[in-house]
């Protein structure tokens, strides 16, 4: 089913939520009425020609008349997006990709590392969740997620407990969840996958990220290595995949 469209959306609000991390809210009933948790949009960071590609960003949550994106400034495109002001008209294509598999009535455990949690609110708002684990390097990188139970862990101990997300993964938390959502840097996701015992791995879904050309499946630029050889397109076959789909070793070698 093709529900995506290319729309000129009005920026409703724009603010810095953490140092270098921005929230931008767009007005777009067209996108928000059909978007599913885990899907993304392709944003034109500027008018004109440069940069020559858009920027893919996961929808963090739906708002009254549109949706919110959370992103950190990592390069030229996101620098331009951080300067969006209320009233700006921005071309946004979406919703794109295959999000979390939320078809069934299940209880979710969410595990996010760094900016990987910048899409969790939509999932938390859409399903029953038993807990959200958020890991970050320090307090200034903890993505805000509103949920009943949030466990925070930071590498420097500046907020929550000190350590890595893997330290908070317990048999009890895993047993209470029917589905497990994981999103973060590749090394973090692999560590989480390796920490989760075999018996619970079939519950795991991971949300991946890749350098994208188009975002709608034509350029083959965002392909992710999968177990057993070959690749899947992050943009249309993902970004969310069952955990056992990913070939972690080859994916880490990409150095993304």
């Amino acid at each position: 089913m093709q529900t995506a469209g290319d729309y000129v959306c009005t920026v409703l609000s724009s603010r810095q939520v953490l140092p270098g991390v921005f929230s931008v809210e767009f007005e777009s009933p067209e996108i928000s009425s059909v978007a599913l948790p885990g899907q993304f949009v392709q944003v034109e960071p500027s008018p004109g020609v440069f940069p020559v590609t858009r920027r893919p960003v996961t929808i963090n949550r739906l708002t009254e008349s549109g949706f919110e994106l959370l992103f950190d400034v990592v390069g030229r495109g996101t620098q331009l997006m951080a300067r969006f002001l209320p009233g700006d008209m921005v071309r946004v294509m979406g919703p794109l990709g295959k999000g979390w598999d939320v078809d069934q009535d299940k209880t979710w455990l969410l595990i996010g590392g760094g900016l990987g949690a910048a899409g969790f609110q939509f999932l938390v708002d859409s399903v029953r969740s038993s807990g959200v684990i958020i890991g970050a390097s320090g307090a200034d990188r903890v993505i805000p997620v509103q949920a009943q139970t949030v466990h925070i862990v930071t590498e420097d101990g500046s907020r929550g407990s000190r350590g890595l997300v893997t330290a908070l993964i317990s048999e009890e938390l895993l047993a209470r969840a029917d589905s497990i959502a994981v999103c973060g840097p590749v090394a973090m996701m692999e560590a989480v996958w390796n920490t989760i015992p075999e018996a619970h791995r079939s519950k795991v879904q991971v949300s991946t990220e890749s350098r994208m050309g188009c975002g709608w499946g034509v350029c083959d630029g965002c392909s992710i290595p999968v177990s057993g050889g070959g690749y899947r397109k992050c943009c249309v076959e993902g970004p969310v995949f069952p955990g056992d789909t990913i070939d972690w070793k080859r994916w880490k070698e990409a150095g993304l």
Partner: peptide
């Protein structure tokens, strides 16, 4: 052909490098 290992794309200041590998 399954194509080249990632990264297959790199945006440059004024263009795009691609190495898809005829997937």
């Amino acid at each position: 052909r399954s194509g080249n290992p990632p990264p297959r794309l790199l945006e440059t200041p004024f263009g795009l490098l691609n190495s898809i590998g005829l997937a």
